[in-house]
Structures are given as C-alpha cells and as structure tokens.
C-alpha cells in the first residue's frame, strides 16, 4: 500500500512540475514565436493570396476584440483602396488545429483567396492542403456569408482524396471565418475608413 501511494505521489509531482515548467516556457516564448510565424508562415501565405496588392499587409495589421478573444486582421489595398481584410481562423483537422487565412473583399463579401498556414496533418495526404493550391483555390470568389461543406456532406467543395477530415476542417475554418467576419463587420468598416484617409 505504501509503495502504491509513493508511486502515485512521485508521478503526480513530476507531472505537475512538468506542466508548470512547460506553461512557463510557453509564456516566455509566445511573443517571439508569434513574430517568427508572422515572418515565415503567415507572411508568405498572405502575400500569396493577396497578389497585386499595393501595400504591405503585414505592416498594415491591427487587432480588434471579438468578445473575449483578440483577433489580428491584415489589410490589403488594391488600386490604393483598402477594401480587403485577411482573417485567420481554425478548424479541427486530423492531427490538430489547421489555421486558414481568408482574404475577404469587403465591398461584395466575396473571398479573394484562402491559404493554409499552420497544420499538423499527415505528409502526402492532409498536408497537401497547404502545398497544393488547387484545393484552397475552390474558395475563391465564393461568398463569405455561405457555410462551406465538402460534397460528401452536401456542400460544393471537392474534398482532397484521402484527406476528407482535413478537407472538412478547412471548410469548417472557412465557415468560422465567415462567422467572425459577420460579427466584426461594423468594426472592420470603421477601421478600413482610417486606412482610406
């Protein structure tokens, strides 16, 4: 009995210490990781979906409050008019959260482009969502106010073969982006006015 108690105590103490150490490290590195991701992952994704933009969307970013969470929004200017916003949303994929950058034209609520940023999907299957632009390009020119589904679920997005869960996750992320967009639209319009001054 004493041995059992000792085992439980040692394991618990170790796990607690490990958890504490990790949360400390996470807090300490979070700001730097954010900067690195902007530079290496989100930056290239944003420039890829906002081709022909006349400003630097990474530079022209702002944060607004959506309920409790703070969301980062990137602004794209076309023909010197700030009319495009880029939001990031997440869907639950096969190996974890999948981040999706969605660029929305605020004049007619259509999607300008979408790109997967962070993911931990299987290489060769789900990971193609990022490498192969064919899948995400399906979202182009669709209305952001729709909800997105793969064809197997009665929607109109063709899933990648062998990666239905990933495809669903990307659709869910796009739908969520629509939800965020609708909630924050009044704030976004105000913010864009500042950029157009």
């Amino acid at each position: 009995m004493r041995e059992l108690i000792k085992m439980v105590i040692v394991l618990t103490v170790l796990a607690v210490l490990s958890g504490g150490l990790l949360s400390g490290f996470r807090n300490a590195t979070a700001a730097r990781i954010e900067v690195q991701q902007l530079k290496f992952v989100k930056g290239p994704a944003i420039t890829a979906i906002l081709k022909g933009v006349s400003n630097d969307p990474i530079e022209d970013r702002f944060a607004i409050k959506d309920g409790e969470t703070e969301r980062k929004v990137f602004v794209g200017k076309f023909d010197d008019k700030a009319n495009t916003v880029v939001l990031e949303s997440f869907g639950k994929g096969y190996g974890g959260d999948i981040g999706l950058m969605v660029a929305i034209n605020m004049e007619d609520d259509t999607i300008v482009g979408a790109a997967v940023t962070t993911h931990s999907e299987t290489p060769g299957l789900g990971a193609r969502a990022k490498g192969d632009p064919g899948f995400v390009s399906q979202f182009k020119s669709l209305s952001i106010n729709d909800s997105f589904k793969v064809t197997a679920d009665g929607g109109r997005v063709n899933a990648m073969s062998g990666a239905t869960i990933t495809s669903r996750a990307v659709c869910a992320a796009a739908t969520e982006a629509g939800g965020i967009y609708q909630r924050m639209k009044p704030q976004l319009i105000e913010k864009l006015k500042e950029f157009n001054k």
């Binding site: 490290f25 996470r26 590195t29 730097r32 990781i33 690195q36 991701q37 530079k39 290496f40």
Partner: peptide, 8 residues
Amino acid sequence: LLMQAFAY
C-alpha cells in the same frame, strides 16, 4: 518551443 522562437 525554443526552436520555434529562435530557429524557425
């Protein structure tokens, strides 16, 4: 975490 922060 360290690698993400310093050698992305």
